[in-house]
Design a protein around this nucleic acid. Sequence first.
DNA 1: CTGTATCCTTCAAGATACTG
DNA 2: CAGTATCTTGAAGGATACAG
Lengths: 124, 124
Amino acid sequence: MASSLERTFNCPVELALEVLGGKWKVVMLARLKEGPLRYAELRRLVPRMSEKMLTQRLRELEEQGLILRVTRPGAAKQAVYTLTQRGESARPTLQALYDWGVRIADEVGARIESPTPAKRRKTA
Amino acid sequence: MASSLERTFNCPVELALEVLGGKWKVVMLARLKEGPLRYAELRRLVPRMSEKMLTQRLRELEEQGLILRVTRPGAAKQAVYTLTQRGESARPTLQALYDWGVRIADEVGARIESPTPAKRRKTA
DNA sequence: CTGTATCCTTCAAGATACTG
DNA sequence: CAGTATCTTGAAGGATACAG
């Protein structure tokens, strides 16, 4: 649980970004806040992220106490990731980032991938 | 005004972090949202940031339209940085990050430098 | 399905010296 | 005062192959 948070930060915002920052974590959290997800589901929902990154960020989020990893052994291995209480506590922050992101995406002319592909086994 | 925002992002949150992310910009914005600041004042308020970083981030924030740089020529050169309208629009987001940062700083046991040194010419 | 292990590239950031 | 200019390094991220 130590991770690298045991430093001195210039301000609380810097700390928040240390946890949420980087290229992928907030994207993953944005998905996980919709509900628990398996490894493969996350991979499908964030296709541009390499598996290495996916695993690394999952471990990091777990270490920081934002997500919980539950495995269910069996023929087909399963690993389910859910937000912890602390992860849940980030909701308003993520929402604020989301709202502001939408706003300036328009202003700046940035493109956003796809709002929420939702899950579908077969298109038909 | 182009900068590097003209990409495709996985979600709005990623875009928001592209603008606010990195090690220093939010710290600078946290100061600037208290009011206009000169170059030297910013340097003093964020002493751990090298001058190179300070200048680079200032230029970037300017390019992204979050801050405005106004120079007043004269014997002693002056450069004053203020938030633009877009910069102001980030207030709620920065506040959300701040609040959450305070919360988990406590939980995780992270140290925060100094709340707000405020400006003082002489201590007495 | 759920990951590890490597290798490689790029870039943010740090240190420091210098300028108009 | 308000910056530039270099040089260097570490970490982040990407691609891809392999494994239980």
